[in-house]
Design a protein around this nucleic acid. Sequence first.
DNA 1: CATGAATGAGTTTTCATTCAT
DNA 2: AATGAATGAAAACTCATTCAT
Lengths: 193, 193, 193, 193
Amino acid sequence: MERHLRADAARNREAILAAAEAEFRAHGVEASIDAIAERAGVGVGTLYRNYSTKDELMRAILAARAEPLVAAAQEALTASDPGAAFFEFVRRVFAASGDFKALADSLTAAGLDLDAAKQEAGGELMGAVRQLFARAQEAGDVRADVTLDDLHLLIGGLSHSTQGAADQRQISRCVDLLCDAVRSPAIRSANRR
Amino acid sequence: MERHLRADAARNREAILAAAEAEFRAHGVEASIDAIAERAGVGVGTLYRNYSTKDELMRAILAARAEPLVAAAQEALTASDPGAAFFEFVRRVFAASGDFKALADSLTAAGLDLDAAKQEAGGELMGAVRQLFARAQEAGDVRADVTLDDLHLLIGGLSHSTQGAADQRQISRCVDLLCDAVRSPAIRSANRR
Amino acid sequence: MERHLRADAARNREAILAAAEAEFRAHGVEASIDAIAERAGVGVGTLYRNYSTKDELMRAILAARAEPLVAAAQEALTASDPGAAFFEFVRRVFAASGDFKALADSLTAAGLDLDAAKQEAGGELMGAVRQLFARAQEAGDVRADVTLDDLHLLIGGLSHSTQGAADQRQISRCVDLLCDAVRSPAIRSANRR
Amino acid sequence: MERHLRADAARNREAILAAAEAEFRAHGVEASIDAIAERAGVGVGTLYRNYSTKDELMRAILAARAEPLVAAAQEALTASDPGAAFFEFVRRVFAASGDFKALADSLTAAGLDLDAAKQEAGGELMGAVRQLFARAQEAGDVRADVTLDDLHLLIGGLSHSTQGAADQRQISRCVDLLCDAVRSPAIRSANRR
DNA sequence: CATGAATGAGTTTTCATTCAT
DNA sequence: AATGAATGAAAACTCATTCAT
């Protein structure tokens, strides 16, 4: 064992997170703690010292993986073209979302955690997205008859489908399609990919 | 036990299927065989005589629930307007899909089964859909740059998001959006909802 | 394995109870379910089918072992000499109590269960004992300055000490001592053992 | 950490002992080493440096708490009235025994340790008590048909029952009863409380 | 020396699956 | 053929104990 060096308790935390993410992606919510610990090269006890519940571990993954997106969303809020910024952000979400089967799964299968998790992991994210969306809609770049919830459904769904294998080209094609669908008809032709 | 008036093994099969569907819808993949058997009013043994694995049971549900869709798809193939028939069929898929959390879950959580299940449950369905799609595309009603796989991703995803709660209006709005997204730009305005 | 014969699910229940009692007596509350199951010659699952919780198992032991005492107490209530009946019953308690380390332990160590357990297992017993005691005291055979609670303390304690090894002669000597202690002074000499 | 001003390893030992006693009293044998260490304001490692086993720690508590009793017993040996000295000592034991749930528990639940613990913690104590008892019996103040072992059973038991809640008055009443029971009949009336 | 992170065997409990009746 | 008792592997989680810092 080449761990243990005290100061890399931090390293352990990250190793666990990575292992957990991998296991969750491979086996869904059913992924076993023992397997995660083993993959992380760590005893179960260590895992539990860091994340005292399977649930907490899941949420930690979400939170960790959501961070860059939060940053991106907040940055996007300062962009000059609300529509462009919004659609760009949506694409970024998908670029990142290769990391999220665990997320989708935990939300799906753990049921009750959904809200708690969204609060914790996605609280800020959701806030930022809400604003991003509102700005784009006000600017007339997003159809007025589409709600933020619709967007979540569409994005969440595709993001789910997208886990696993689909090739990058295809994903990108579908994302474009989705963006296009919510874009205001008036300006649609101009933005045609 | 005062059931089985002789030879209604068939009745049992259906009862089991119904019970399983209900339990899966209620508890996801985690639904327990014992609970299913009990709800079906049958001993576990009987359940196992019919479906020798939890997995097989899941696939059987998929297959059973896919049947009406297969019929619909095949009927749609005979329609005169390929575009209309195709989009109508997509809507029908979503109308039916309220029945499929178990499906989504089993696909999601069982991972490996995904492909096998698709083969078995959706074999015919896929065939019919493929033709439906091809005809609509040839007729110029569906964008040429969209593939059948794209469609699966989009529909599968939304169908996943859609499980659980979302109100019918919202679902229908999103489905329209999706249809619109794959519709050929030329004719889009004409079909505006 | 020479079990399994369906109709001796009952036999299993008893085997489990016996094994549990033995293990509890040997290792206190810490006794492990696996060990109990193994000693009973049964899978853990079987044990859990019968007693769905360690707690329930403990209470079942108490209840089972308390039964004969309840009977004895109730019978004693009909005796003509209240004092004699009472002291006789106390002796009977100790004769039976070779079976009770588990009891003492669960009461002691599980804390919260104490009351619940008493309610369930000893409810009737306690009632009967209360009457037995009251009658003996009214008849002037038990000292007026002793309460039922005192008696419980004294009997419970000795009964606890008594678990494990102490030879029968010694136990009986101590019980006599105890009885003597609560006997009314007036009649003490007459009853001298 | 801003403790250990050098060489107060001693201070640590006592802090640990106190913490352990508190935790054991609160949670029985199940008390966790981590909790004890934390309460003592010490790392687990330090605790283990001092007491290399949970068991050893338990025995250390017993030994520590037994000390004053040993002193009392030895002093009692020099008293002029053997009977009075003996009974007085018994009362003192109970007065002290509010401190001993951990003891009772460890004896109870650890089973095997019982004897070892008695050897270590109570070795001297037992010796002194033996003499005290012998003298009282020789002096005719204690019934001749009672053995030291009987006494242990009776006292140990009551002491066990007594842990936890019972009010002081009741305890004292029961102790008197017990003393009375072993007192020689001849002199009993004279000593009536 | 003290610290507390790491370890992993062990605990209770669940559940798919088998098999005697 | 139907039943449901039995099985035991596996899961989440705990905790005494070790050992790098």
